[in-house]
Simulated assay, not measured.
Amino acid sequence: MVVDGDERVEAFWLGLGLGLGLPGLIDVHTHFMPERVPAKVWAYFDAVGPLVGRAWPIAYRYEEAELLAVLRGFGVRAFALMISPHKPGTAQWLNGWAAGFAARTPDCLRTATFFPEAGAEDYVRAELGAGARVLTAHVQVGAYGPGDVRLDVVWGALAEAGAPVVVHCGSGPAPGKHTGPEPVGRLLARHPRLRLVVAHMGMPEYTDFLGMAERYEGVHLDTTMAFTDFAERAAPIPRTERGRLADLGGRILFGSDFPDLPYGYAHALEVLARLETGDDWLRGVCHGNARRLFGL
């Protein structure tokens, strides 16, 4: 149950935290799922699906209990899920599963999601009232625009509550009808107080999403897959953006995509050190920024 290089994960964060009280990592982007769903997802990656287009060997193909043991062994002290409804009626089912998962997994932030459908505002408000700490939206999987009129009251409720929302809205790994920075820009113009966490740094439209973070103080970005050798071959981040990454360090959060990684977990961390933005920046990205955002 050990991938080559896993022993380097603890060494990474211990090296950052020595004498500075860094207790471990916070991962804002993982993929624990209901029973039988992971096998379907992994089969898709094994078949080199049309959105991937290249080999994607799953590094951590274990049952739920083993996956939790691996993640905790890395020193991950808290984590959030990325749950993604793909049709009407599935969001509440996923929310029920996620609530149960969080109840039996105290280091998991209770996560909820939504879909453009009748009743979405009611169940989102109910989830917030029941203790949901983070919401998710995946416009590619859900095939809906963030500006869908049925979601306007939902976004308003989330802005009012100050609830963080992890949004997969970039056009990677392949563009969709509703992906890209323009729909999110229009959403933020309407709801500027939203606390959005742009998944994958907005891959591949990094520059545009960094600009949104500069314009809107509630916009954050997660590092999921970004900067890795795997992602850089297809969607490299321009070196000219390094200075902006440093300046926005307080709003960049570590995410991994665990367990659906085509490389070891250590690599997702070590590539952040390659950016040469300094240990204080890394400490914030790997722990402090998420702790503040989620009130941990």
Rank of each mutant, 00 (worst) to 15 (best):
F45T: 14
V166G: 03
V285I: 10
E7L: 10
G24M: 02
G5P: 00
I58F: 08
G295I: 05
E127D: 07
G75P: 02
F45M: 14
F294T: 04
E35P: 15
R110A: 12
D148C: 08
L151T: 05
V2R: 15
A161G: 03
P262G: 02
M203E: 07
V167K: 09
F230H: 13
L14D: 08
A213N: 02
A235M: 13
G218V: 07
A43H: 06
Q92D: 11
L51V: 13
P192I: 12
R274E: 14
S84K: 14
E241M: 14
F209Q: 01
G243M: 07
A143E: 13
F32I: 04
A98C: 08
I252N: 04
N95C: 14
C108M: 01
W155F: 07
R283W: 04
M203V: 09
K177L: 15
H220M: 04
G53R: 14
E66R: 10
T111Y: 02
E35I: 09
A234H: 12
D257F: 09
V197T: 13
G131Q: 04
V2C: 02
L187W: 08
R104S: 13
G250W: 04
P236W: 09
T223A: 07
V271D: 06
I252W: 02
A112V: 06
G278M: 04
V28L: 13
H200R: 04
R133W: 03
E182D: 15
L18C: 11
G288W: 06
H267V: 08
P204H: 12
C108W: 01
G243N: 08
G129Q: 09
L151W: 05
D46C: 09
G162E: 09
R251V: 03
G243A: 15
R193Y: 05
D122E: 15
H29F: 01
F209E: 01
A118H: 07
T111R: 04
D107M: 07
P164S: 11
Y263H: 13
A273D: 12
T105D: 03
A59L: 06
E232M: 14
G24W: 01
V198G: 02
H191Q: 11
I83S: 05
D6R: 03
P23W: 08
C286P: 06
R8P: 00
A235G: 06
D229Q: 12
V198N: 03
D247P: 00
V184H: 00
V3Y: 12
T277M: 15
W93T: 14
P259W: 10
A78R: 15
G218M: 05
